[in-house]
């Protein structure tokens, strides 16, 4: 009997048990997904934004990871058996069934979270606040120059990295694949630009890092107005698409790099919305540009030409 077949038969009882466990997880994930879908339809969220249902993307990522692990388990050729060994390492490292319930609990917590938008805006606002505290303590030295805005996913990755360092290499590799995919999903949702609050504060932070366009050069009441103002929805929509495409490209590049260079960390920072924002495509048709003479579009549309991000005028006071 071929060795691989013998191994597969040896694993059968265990495989059955795992299959049931994975099916249970998939069933729970399916139920959660349906629940989120219904909730989003009820709130009209998916009508406005068919793509960025962020809990869904998290669930998809995890379900894919679990399915791949299961398929690797089922397959039983030598390379897939290696995958199964990794899955076993993963389960052991995560504490077996506790891992499944732990991640399911996490997903439920995310699904039940009152408002992702508020959380992300709060996180960004607090980072902005802590930078202001530091700047007040160190006149002339800008906090954000030293510590640029780090998305939640990157901060969590830092913690996970420390923990992974304690594990055997095989377990590390598999855990990375699952956890970092998961964190990438969180990162994507964290940066998701359908949340005007998040966008607003990210832009405020990016601006604060910048040069003459810095928000800090504004008077407090002006800064407040800028923070309150929404970004032009047309501009925002275009930026969202571009940024998401750039971010996906970065995730793919990181995966390729990490699979080609085991043990090495991909050091290229993820693209920020501001990277995309700084290079806007001309939005005006040529005829309209001609009317504006030699002025650049930003000069036409913005009275303060060094204030790069075009924001809507402040809403009229009630």
């Amino acid at each position: 009997m071929p060795k691989e077949k013998a191994e597969r038969q040896e694993l059968t009882p265990e495989l059955r048990k795992k299959k049931e466990a994975i099916q249970e997880v998939q069933s729970q994930l399916g139920a959660l997904r349906q629940e989120i879908g219904v909730r989003n339809r009820n709130t009209g969220k998916d009508k406005e934004n068919p793509q960025p249902i962020t809990e869904m993307s998290v669930l998809n990522e995890l379900q894919t990871a679990w399915s791949n692990a299961y398929l690797a388990h089922e397959g039983a050729d030598s390379s897939k058996l290696k995958g199964f060994e990794k899955w076993k390492s993963f389960e052991q490292a995560m504490g077996g069934e506790a891992a499944t319930s732990g991640i399911t609990d996490l997903l439920k917590a995310l699904a039940d979270a009152p408002s992702e938008k508020e959380q992300q805006a709060t996180d960004a606002a607090l980072r902005f606040e802590i930078s202001q505290l530091s700047d007040e303590m160190n006149a002339g030295q800008k906090y954000l120059d030293t510590f640029p805005a780090a998305p939640l996913s990157e901060r969590a990755e830092e913690q996970v990295d420390k923990i992974l360092g304690k594990l055997p290499p095989e377990a590390q590799e598999f855990l990375r694949a699952i956890i970092f995919d998961f964190l990438a999903s969180i990162g994507e949702s964290f940066n998701m630009l359908d949340f005007s609050g998040s966008l607003r504060f990210r832009m405020a932070m990016e601006q604060a890092k910048g040069d003459t366009a810095s928000l800090e050069k504004l008077k407090p009441e002006e800064r407040e107005e800028v923070l309150k103002a929404s970004v032009d929805p047309v501009v925002r929509s275009g930026l969202e698409s571009k940024w998401k495409a750039e971010h996906r490209r970065w995730v793919q590049e990181r995966k390729v790099f990490e699979s080609n260079n085991p043990g090495k960390k991909y050091v290229v920072p993820p693209p920020t919305i501001f990277d995309v924002y700084k290079k806007p495509e001309p939005s005006k048709p040529p005829a309209e540009s001609a009317l504006a003479g030699n002025q650049k579009p930003s000069e036409v549309s913005s009275p303060a030409k060094d204030q790069t991000p075009p924001v809507n005028p402040p809403p009229p006071k009630a």
């Binding site: 052991q92 490292a93 504490g95 996490l106 913690q159 304690k166």
Partner: peptide, 13 residues
């Protein structure tokens, strides 16, 4: 919570 769970698993492993 998740990071702590992973940390616990790592220590156990």
């Amino acid at each position: 919570q998740t990071v702590e769970k992973i940390a616990g698993g790592a220590v156990a492993a």
